[in-house]
Design a protein around this nucleic acid. Structure first.
Lengths: 225, 225
DNA sequence: AAATTAATTAAATATCTATTTAAATCTTGA
DNA sequence: TCAAGATTTAAATAGATATTTAATTAATTT
């Protein structure tokens, strides 16, 4: 759609004015990593889309893996911080229920549904969770482990009849459900084609979040069999 | 672990006896596509692991994409058939509940948890669902669309108060949850490290299935807000 | 036994890949 | 104004990739 272009001058040398290419690289790389994966994305193509040479990407981010980490961390760190802040707010406010906790966990990612760039990140994010490679593991743990654990412990306090092991299991079911729902790869439209409730009222993102919260909160509260 | 080796003779020519390399190629490719993705898997490496040359793979499967399809379809088609058969059995038996339906949908994939090769497929399967590429879409639709729709309609009959659009949405939440849980990429062990309920009793696969069914069935039945 | 078909390899083809190096141009600070 | 630093390119490096072709050996059919 809207490809970001540096004003091109043929030949080498620093161009006039300000370019802020570093951010453009992150944006384009985010889209391409989301659509084609890490291995499927060529540095050359990222460079082409911003109208520059591959060497420029290695100038800003020293190699492909570092670029990937930068793309991921740019948003992921905000998500974790946001989750922790929301959890702290709930604790401070006193009483909260399972549904409040689910909503607090999901809102920081649901917010990304509102922009195309945010949706790219969500696809990237889902892919990363499905990739067993070491690069993916390390990144996920580094960013999400602490906050996910904090939420799991909060859930455990709300669900004293459920053994801790099963609380964690349900947390991971929540993660799987929202990743899939938010990543838009499930092509809900394709599946429901011809059902025709028409488009959802009240903003796609909000409605989506509400549906997921409802489903997950019920799953969390399910009486252990 | 157990790499399949063709008995090597140096030089070209048809080897003596029977080799059944076609199946070996599918097995190795399944593992490698699961771990490294489509773009991240090199034909050359697949060939090396079976002790043959890349040309042999192109002899049996004419190119990389066809190989990928063959790997996927080998199991996916059985899953769909199994799902349809189980749904028909439920219908024939007369009354069934939400939990029965969830279990019927999930059992064909949960069965794959019992072998290493099956778990490879499950990882591949999850990856495919997160890949927005055209190859992934077409495959998923070809194999799963009809059976998923049939289940969605069965759910709709059991949940008359829930608008069809939302039934489909919940079905896709179910899919996301089980994909993630069964693909083992969530590394539950890592997250729960130090919790120590110890290993689950009664077979990892069965326990896993039971947990997911419980969670998803509750989510499905959640009263619409 | 001869001819045909099946299964395999070695080698070549034609790209595509990430990354580095050196040079070129602009900006900034002294 | 001049030197130092920042940002860019062109070109080279060193491989890796999927796929095709022709040759080779074994199995099967006639």
């Amino acid at each position: 759609m809207d490809r970001i272009m540096a004003k091109k001058r043929n030949g080498p040398g620093r161009p006039g004015g300000q370019t802020n290419l570093s951010e453009s690289i992150l944006d384009v790389a985010e889209q391409m990593f989301a659509d084609n994966g890490f291995a499927g994305t060529a540095m050359r193509h990222v460079a082409e889309r911003i109208g520059a040479t591959p060497a420029l990407i290695n100038y800003y981010f020293s190699n492909k893996e570092t670029l990937f980490r930068a793309v991921f961390l740019r948003r992921a760190e905000k998500i974790t911080e946001d989750r922790m802040a929301r959890l702290a707010a709930l604790e401070a406010a006193g009483g909260y229920c399972v549904e409040d906790l689910v909503r607090a966990f999901l809102e920081p990612t649901a917010a990304l549904l509102d922009t195309a760039q945010g949706r790219s990140f969500l696809r990237l994010h889902s892919r990363l969770h499905m990739e067993p490679e070491e690069i993916a593991f390390a990144l996920r743990r580094q960013v999400y482990q602490a906050s996910t654990r904090a939420y799991a412990e909060a859930f455990a306090r709300l669900l004293p009849d459920l053994p801790p092991r099963r609380v964690y299991h349900r947390v991971s079911l929540m993660v799987g459900a929202y990743l899939y729902a938010f990543s838009d790869t499930n092509r809900l439209g394709e599946l429901t084609e011809g059902i025709g409730d028409g488009p959802l009222p009240g903003g796609e993102g909000d409605r989506m979040l509400q549906d997921v919260v409802e489903f997950v909160a019920a799953g969390m509260r399910a009486s252990p069999g």
